[in-house]
């Protein structure tokens, strides 16, 4: 019943820099299903953002992209810029971490919202456009929407600006919304609100959302499915419930143990830190990117070639040679 709406096939992104080639993304194959919120979790340098900027044509000029990103029967990576422009903002929209980088401080919110709406559909009358914009602002719980509509971006609080961005992204009724760390710059109380709005909107409109975040808690609260990225690859992909109840990949397990929680018992003062540093993507490890930090790594296997992403069970994929990593780590924890 669930069909892929946006499919990434063997996506690879390399950046040419003066200090050498940065191999940011190395063969990501992932489907965004219809009507789901897909969480992409990873730390900085995992390639989680680039993976989704590529199909939108938003990468810097020094990037080389190979592979496919199929949307609506078209490979977005092969489209001309003007063709991509028609899709961007109408069928696929994006929301970023810092709303102020996407808003023009010198133009009123009204001008900026209407511009986006009428650019893609010039037939809409001004009055109609206004009505739709204000309704959208109300929908994202901006109080006093018709007054706010006339204001300038700097007159809004950070949380309101991010809701404005979401409203603008959804004006053209896109099928896909890509949200890149939409709540990272916000206070936790405001974050909770934005996440709730995203969830509600997804249900109401039956769209698909990609939620890129570094925060496992945000994923657990919001997403239907999750892909964990590390070293430019998907290491584990599963339903949210599957992932949090039974994580398979040593990295996922380690990340969960390293994440501080409010609900945990504080008497255990120490967190289970992951030793070492994330890989340098100029010279990524030849095998599994997590090999140098992995507690269950097999020398001679894991450091030779990267493990493929394989199904462990229904809807649960994991890229690890060690199929019993979970049991081993669980036992170690109890000792």
């Amino acid at each position: 019943m669930s069909n892929a709406i946006l499919s990434l096939r063997d996506l690879t992104i390399h950046f040419k820099t003066p200090d050498g080639m940065v191999k940011a993304v190395n063969g990501v194959t992932l489907d965004l299903q219809e009507q789901e919120i897909l969480g992409i979790v990873g730390e900085s340098g995992s390639g989680k953002s680039q993976t989704w900027m590529a199909p939108m044509g938003l990468l810097a000029d020094n990037a080389t992209v190979t592979g496919q990103a199929v949307f609506d029967g078209q490979n977005l990576l092969a489209l001309k810029p003007q063709e991509l422009n028609k899709i961007r903002g109408t069928k696929i929209s994006m929301v970023f971490q810092d709303p102020m980088t996407c808003l023009n401080p010198y133009l009123s919110i009204a001008v900026q919202m209407m511009e986006g709406l009428r650019f893609h559909d010039p037939s809409i009358s001004k009055r109609e456009a206004e009505k739709r914009c204000v309704a959208m602002l109300e929908r994202v719980a901006i109080p006093d929407a018709s007054r706010r509509f006339r204001q300038y971006p700097h007159e809004l609080s950070g949380g309101m600006r991010q809701r404005l961005m979401i409203a603008m992204a959804l004006l053209n009724d896109p099928q896909v919304l890509i949200a890149d760390e939409p709540t990272t710059a916000l206070d936790v109380t405001i974050q909770a609100q934005i996440l709730d709005i995203l969830r509600e909107l997804q249900r109401e409109r039956g769209m698909s959302i990609v939620l890129i975040t570094h925060d496992l808690g945000v994923v657990a609260e919001t997403c239907d499915r999750v892909a964990v990225m590390y070293g430019g690859r998907v290491q584990e992909a599963a339903t949210a419930q599957g992932l949090f109840e039974s994580p398979q990949h040593p990295y996922t397990i380690a990340l969960m143990q390293a994440t501080p929680r409010v609900e945990a018992d504080a008497e255990t003062q120490r967190l289970a830190a992951i030793p070492g540093q994330p890989p340098n993507m100029r010279v990524p490890p030849p095998g599994c990117a997590f090999f140098p930090r992995c507690p269950v790594a097999i020398k001679g296997t894991c450091d030779v070639s990267p493990p493929p992403l394989e199904a462990r069970r229904d809807q649960h994929f994991c890229a690890c040679y060690k199929s019993d990593a979970q049991q081993i780590l669980k036992e170690a924890e109890h000792v």
């Binding site: 936790v188 996440l195 808690g217 609260e221 419930q241 949090f244 929680r261």
Partner: peptide, 12 residues
């Protein structure tokens, strides 16, 4: 409010 807003790693 602050405590209730912290995301939990618990899907169920």
């Amino acid at each position: 409010v602050l405590l209730s807003a912290v995301p939990r790693m618990q899907v169920v």
